[in-house]
């Protein structure tokens, strides 16, 4: 006791600060440093990434300006116009079939894209995950490489394939399967194929990530307990990689539903999707409030998808942890 007292009060003044205080001070310093380090990223994204969303949220409740932009008359008209339209003569409200069909088309195309990507991506990811280690990374690299290349370049390549005198049609005519070219380009089919082509790697990557962790002893156990290939796949593999499946579906669905380039180039102006509708409001149609309202509506759909993702995948991860 005596020793403790002398040393604490006398010889070394720097230790006057108690352990708790010193720990707290160190903690405060590291917290300050941390926020200093993240601040540039937060500032840039906050200002130029998040602020604009607030602005279009405001715009969606204003009226369109005479030429473009907005005028400061608060109204719900833009939100109403997302799905409704006023009759030109008697001003009664009716459903805006053009908008409704674009939204429906976007939803259906994004969903079909997701399913197609899953059908192709699942076996591919499984195949990659069952390769020897060295081949795996090569496969993963090769499958993901197109994703990083320019979307425009990929869509352009698809145009060359699907055109009336493109490679598919000329091959089929050459082989005498058909006489005149199939109309593929500028149809919903073309947009669906284009979207699947564009976002397929986004399905394979998360699927692979969860399959890589798959414990193949569990599959051995499945076969040992009289499961055939199909039952093992259905009862063991798929439930185990479910988080990967959901992640892949969401990753494909989100960019697909907001697609702009693919429907523009492969849909040929008549098969618009929400993305094109939004762009038109800020372009030729000059209805910024409506464009803003549709943007927010699109974001809402994406948020719903994300919430499904979070609830399924994250909560599952928590359960396992």
């Amino acid at each position: 006791m005596a020793i403790g007292e002398t040393t604490a009060t006398g010889s070394v003044p720097t230790t006057q600060m108690s352990g708790r205080e010193a720990t707290a001070a160190a903690e405060r310093r590291s917290v300050r440093k941390r926020w200093l380090l993240v601040s540039p990223a937060l500032a840039i994204i906050g200002l130029v990434g998040i602020m604009p969303l607030a602005i279009i949220a405001v715009y969606s409740f204003l009226s369109p300006g005479p030429y473009a932009g907005i005028s400061w008359d608060p109204t719900l008209e833009a939100w109403l116009n997302v799905f409704m339209e006023r009759d030109i003569f008697d001003e009664t409200l009716g459903i805006n079939y053009a908008h409704a069909s674009i939204v429906t088309r976007s939803f259906v195309l994004a969903f079909v894209t997701m399913i197609l990507a899953l059908i192709v991506g699942f076996p591919t990811a499984y195949f990659i995950a069952t390769r020897p280690d060295k081949q795996r990374y090569l496969w993963l690299f090769i499958i993901s490489l197109p994703f990083w290349s320019n979307l425009l370049v990929r869509t352009f390549a698809m145009m060359l394939v699907l055109r009336d005198n493109g490679y598919i049609n000329s091959s089929l005519i050459y082989l005498n399967v058909i006489e005149k070219p199939l109309e593929i380009i500028f149809t919903n089919t073309a947009v669906g194929i284009g979207l699947t082509y564009a976002y397929l790697p986004l399905m394979v990557m998360p699927l692979y990530a969860s399959m890589e962790k798959l414990d193949f002893r569990l599959i051995e156990a499945g076969y040992d307990l009289y499961g055939n290939r199909w039952k093992v796949l259905w009862r063991i593999v798929i439930p185990l990689v479910r988080p990967g499946i959901i992640a892949g579906c969401i990753l494909v669905f989100i960019p697909a539903i907001g697609a702009y380039v693919t429907p523009k180039l492969l849909g040929g102006g008549k098969n618009l999707m929400v993305g094109n509708l939004i762009a038109n409001q800020f372009g030729t149609s000059r209805d910024w409030p409506l464009g803003s309202a549709i943007s927010l509506f699109l974001m809402l759909m994406v948020m719903v998808a994300l919430i499904i993702y979070v609830r399924n995948v994250i909560s599952e991860a928590d359960k396992n942890a």
Binding site: G4, T7, A8, T15, S18, G19, R20, A22, T23, A26
Partner: peptide, 9 residues
């Protein structure tokens, strides 16, 4: 680590 209490010499 920092001691919550006590001294290290």
């Amino acid at each position: 680590e920092h001691p919550t209490d006590g001294h290290i010499l």
